[in-house]
Design a protein around this nucleic acid. Structure first.
Lengths: 251, 251
DNA sequence: TTCGATTTGTTCGTATGTATT
DNA sequence: TAATACATACGAACAAATCGA
């Protein structure tokens, strides 16, 4: 049967793409919470009036994007921002000896202020909108290695306070997800080398003459909507940024 | 029917994984040359005595790894190292304004020497084995931006000379592929910030006090066999390293 | 421990749509 | 136009993992 569903088929996507969009819509709506199982493939097939194979192909893509996670015999789950996921997909700093460890966090400052021009450009905020500006120090093996400056629009994090931020149970993106329903699904990073400012050098425990790696990250949720702007200054004397476009992805 | 092929099924992979391995073997053997079409899915199904769906799943993975390329109505082709592929999957330097352009190459030196300890470590060469050491300057918008030092084991590139290297028609990996049957399918890169040496600063046209981005790349062929070691020094005054773990991959 | 129900994973087969030559 | 090749969609059967009775 050719795919002659009534109703808005204006863009004329293949059926499995439409199904994928409808599943994503229900994810955005928060119908299925992170960590919980979505309906079984056969049940979804009934609900959407398509074959199981079509559901499978739609879910395949969402799994490839790490938005859903399949487990044979158990079900298909909405991905959560656990420490593991953080370490594997969003944190790229490794020891020069190849070691990989979850960083310890130390909150340096938490302020509410106005968006600067970079935030206006990269985030989708208007001129002078309120943003949270958070400084966070990451330590590896007990020593400071990364200084993070996080910028998020205050409008999307209504009641956020320093206490809530530092009392979070898991990762930062886990907090976004659990408390504000904002699910970071993709990041884009731009790297350059620079001399650190006096303050930055101070907290990293290096001299101002020591070059640092500067990472400018934009974090996106569904539909490529930017939700966070983050600048990191990295001391690369003992650590490196690992960009392995395949190995990590494939288990 | 349950998958009871005779013969070595020791590891007990699913059938489509075995098919994938057998296809990869034929690619390694050079049975299907880069740029040419492999047999149609139905023909492969006959050859391997499996269903078309199983072939499809095996090819799906090879396409996802960019080893094969499908074209509806035409066939499935062995990926070639064209300038486009180079620009999209192996070259990550973009202008700070977001511009992306293919770099102009200028060969600075071409020598044969002995492997250093880094090459021994990362490449799979033994102590003091012969390697080619090539220095290449990359220009963007007419100005030097990246200095490359390429190291490759001489044993795998038998008759390579400076003339052959500089007279190549396409990309460097295209030369490896066309002339030596070595197909680079994956790279892994480690980035750090450093002060450039006097020579490096000289060719890049910067002062020694200007930090540079240092990229250490290992290029792999099938089965994760390393074939090239490359160190790049990047002037990031007007350019950045773009690490977008999804966007580029998905079209 | 065993068994059965449930769910995803694999494999097969068939039909039809769409793009290319 | 016709043949060929990949793309989409459906359905069925069994395997493998999980979980609770």
């Amino acid at each position: 049967m050719p795919h002659t569903l009534a109703g808005g088929n204006l863009t004329f996507n293949p059926l499995y793409k439409e199904v994928k969009i409808r599943i994503t819509r229900r994810l955005i709506a928060g119908e299925w919470k992170p960590g919980t199982a979505i309906p079984s493939e056969s049940r979804l097939a009934e609900q959407f009036n398509v074959s199981v194979g079509t559901i499978r192909k739609a879910v395949d893509e969402l799994v490839a994007e790490k938005i859903l996670v399949r487990q044979q015999g158990r079900g298909t789950f909405v991905a959560t921002h656990t420490e593991d996921r953080q370490l594997y997909y969003f944190f790229h700093i490794v020891g020069k000896d190849g070691s990989k460890e979850p960083p310890a966090h130390e909150l340096l400052s938490f302020q509410k202020g106005k968006a600067d021009s970079a935030a206006e450009m990269r985030l989708n905020v208007s001129r002078g909108e309120r943003v949270f500006r958070i400084h966070n120090l990451l330590k590896l093996a007990g020593k400071p290695v990364v200084l993070d400056e996080i910028m998020i629009p205050a409008a999307r994090f209504p009641d956020l306070t320093e206490a809530i931020f530092s009392a979070r149970a898991g990762t930062i993106y886990g907090l976004y997800q659990a408390r504000y329903g904002i699910n970071v699904v993709r990041i884009s990073e731009r790297l350059s080398a620079a001399r650190p400012g006096a303050q930055t050098a101070g907290v990293l425990g290096i001299r101002v003459s020591t070059p640092v790696l500067v990472i400018k990250r934009v974090a996106y949720t569904y539909h490529d909507a930017p939700v966070e702007l983050r600048t990191s200054w990295v001391n690369t004397e003992r650590h490196e940024y690992l960009s392995d476009l395949w190995k990590n992805e494939r288990r």
